Simulated assay, not measured.
Amino acid sequence: MLTHTLATPADYPRLTAIWTRSVTATHHFLSLADREAIQRDLPRYFAQVTLWRWQLDGHLIGFTGMAGSDLAMLFLDPTYFRHGYGQQIIRILMKTANLQTVTVNAQNPGALAFYQRQGFKIISQNPLDADGRPYPIINLSLT
């Protein structure tokens, strides 16, 4: 059964490890230097969101970060890709956290297609990510 609990700073090393495995599997467009810089900044990013640990039968499989009704991050361990857990997480967040918006990297077409299958529509695009890096961003919304 898929469950979630609030994460704490004690969880950061395990969440960072999941982030690293997930990004290695999906974010081929990131330069090594940028990936390392983002990884170093993860504790700061984690502290800015409501951070949830997602577990399957007690095993940590991923995490999400919500900023209000915006899904700021969703990362699953690659072992759990394409098993429907991302869809379950999105449905749970829609019901319990009023999920309305999400931002994806334009260079991650798999993530864009995933969110569009969940009912999100493109509302705008930016040529740079939130930290000013040259990774185009697509903003999506349910409304």
Rank of each mutant, 00 (worst) to 15 (best):
I90H: 02
S141Y: 04
T5I: 12
G84A: 11
G119W: 10
R133A: 12
R53I: 05
I123M: 09
L56C: 10
D77A: 07
L15T: 03
Q39G: 12
F46Y: 14
H59Q: 15
W52V: 00
A17D: 15
F120S: 03
A10P: 00
N105F: 09
P43W: 11
P13W: 12
W19A: 13
Y115P: 04
S22I: 07
A111H: 00
G68H: 07
S124N: 13
P134H: 01
V102I: 11
M66H: 06
F114L: 01
S124K: 13
G58H: 08
P9S: 09
G58Q: 06
I89N: 02
Q118D: 01
P109Y: 02
I138T: 08
L112P: 00
L60R: 06
M66A: 05
D77G: 07
P136T: 00
A97P: 04
Q48T: 13
G110N: 11
L42D: 11
I92Y: 09
N108A: 11
S31T: 15
T143I: 10
T103P: 01
R21D: 13
A33W: 01
L140H: 00
A106S: 12
I138C: 04
H83F: 06
P9H: 08
L6H: 12
L99N: 05
D41H: 14
S22R: 07
P134N: 03
T64W: 05
R40V: 14
T24V: 06
I122Y: 00
D77S: 06
R21M: 10
I38E: 12
S22E: 07
E36K: 14
A47M: 05
N126C: 09
H28W: 08
R82W: 01
G68N: 07
R35Y: 08
Q125G: 07
H59I: 12
L142T: 03
I137Y: 01
H28A: 11
A106F: 05
T143E: 11
A25L: 05
F81L: 07
Y85D: 04
V23H: 00
N126K: 14
A17W: 01
Q55R: 11
N98W: 04
A33Q: 13
E36L: 15
F29D: 00
L2R: 01
P78N: 03
Q39I: 11
V23T: 12
R40Q: 15
M73C: 15
G119T: 08
S31W: 02
K121I: 09
H83K: 15
M1Y: 08
A25Q: 06
G65F: 02
F29N: 04
D34N: 10
T50A: 13
I137S: 15
N98L: 07
S124M: 07
G119E: 04
D34K: 03
Q39F: 03
P43C: 10
I137Q: 15
Y45V: 10
F75D: 00
H59S: 10
L128A: 04
T8L: 13
A67D: 15
L2Y: 04
T16M: 10
A7E: 03
V49G: 13
L99F: 03
P43T: 11
A67H: 12
D11R: 09
Q116R: 14
Y80C: 02
F63R: 02
G86I: 00
L6V: 08
A130Y: 11
R91T: 13
W54H: 07
S31V: 05
T79N: 10
M1G: 14
L2A: 05
H27K: 03
D34E: 11
Y115V: 04
G62T: 02
L112N: 04
P9K: 10
R53Y: 00
A10M: 10
